[in-house]
Every structure is written in C-alpha cells, then in structure tokens.
Amino acid sequence: MSLILIAVITLTVLSLIFGAILGFAAVRFRVEGNPIVDQINTLLPQTQCGQCGYPGCRPYAEAIANGDKINKCPPGGEATIQALADLLDVEPEPLDAVEGEKPVQVAYIREEECIGCTKCIQACPVDAILGAARQMHTVIVSECTGCDLCVEPCPVDCIEMRPVEGDLRSWKWEQPSPIPDLLIIATDREDQA
C-alpha cells in the first residue's frame, strides 16, 4: 500500500515540477506574433498589388497562416506556390488567376499626357513614382514592382504596363530538353516488344 502511495506522491511531485518549468518557459520564451507569417511573407514577391484579394503581401501571408489557399499570387507564379508548398508542407496547386502568370512588367508614364494630378503617386505602394502637383510624373523603373495599382487611378489614362526587356546580361541558358526515357536494358525492350 505504502509502495503505491510513494509512487503516486513521487509522480505528483514530478508533474508539479515539470508543470512549473513548462509554465515558466511559456511565459519567459513567449514568441511575439506568428513566426510562420514572417516566413511566408519573405517568400511572397512583395509587389503589394492586392491581386490575391488582400491589401498587400503581409495580410495575405497572415491569411495563408490562417488556412487560406497558397495559389492566389499571380506575380509570384508557380515558383512562389512551390516555395510556399515546401514551407507549409501542402500540395502545390495551379495558380488561381484568370490571365495566368504574366511576364515581369513595369509601369510607364507617357509623360507628355501626364497632367500632374499626383493620384498615381498616392497609389504606389513602394514610392516608385516621382513627381509633384502640376509637374510631370515619372516611374523609377528600378523600384517599380509592376503591381499596376497606379494604372487605375490615372484620370487621363497615361500609365501603361510594359514588359521588362531583358538584354544579354539577363539572358540565361535553357535547360537541355529532357533525356528520353529509353529502354536501355535488353529484357525491358523484349518485354516492350
């Protein structure tokens, strides 16, 4: 009888000690915010275009962390979906966009038509448009993410999206066409025949 009592008391004391340690750790090493959101956010292309239906990349990252689908980011395309699928260990899905994956674009302001209303400047999420009231505006190409948020607010329709032209230095070797699945083992060939 006393043996059982000792066992019960020992286990109770142990559980209390470990409970206290866990409780302390939970308070002392508390993680602020959701770390997975940051990880998802770094994989998103940060165009802040809102094509996913959320107002920017971070809100979409938060939505994914809360269980939204990972295939809503057209600027990121298949590469982003694959990276998200790897991170979250889910099945990659085809891109959920009407026009599919678009080539990289940048905004272009037809400067002679610009009336200097500053509406596009206010719309640009990354401050890539330069200009002032009643002064001509222009796009800083190296900063433009191609989100096309500036196209809609323009009252004179002088902004268009142009594909980025690659030159030699952005040219890359193509991967060779896949090696045909030849039957190189004699018995396999015989089976085939």
Partner: peptide, 26 residues
C-alpha cells in the same frame, strides 16, 4: 544543365533581393 541552373538560382536571388527591397520600401 549547370549553366541553366546557375542562371535560375541567380535570377531567384535577384528576385528575392528585389522583393526584400520592395518590402522595405513598402
């Protein structure tokens, strides 16, 4: 294959840098 893979990785890295830059600006 290696040249193509190197170019892909460099492109990804460039994209990553650009995304990081855009995030900071945003």
């Amino acid at each position: 294959y290696y040249r193509s893979a190197k170019a892909d990785i460099r492109e990804q890295q460039q994209k990553q840098i650009k995304a990081e830059h855009a995030r900071q600006r945003f």
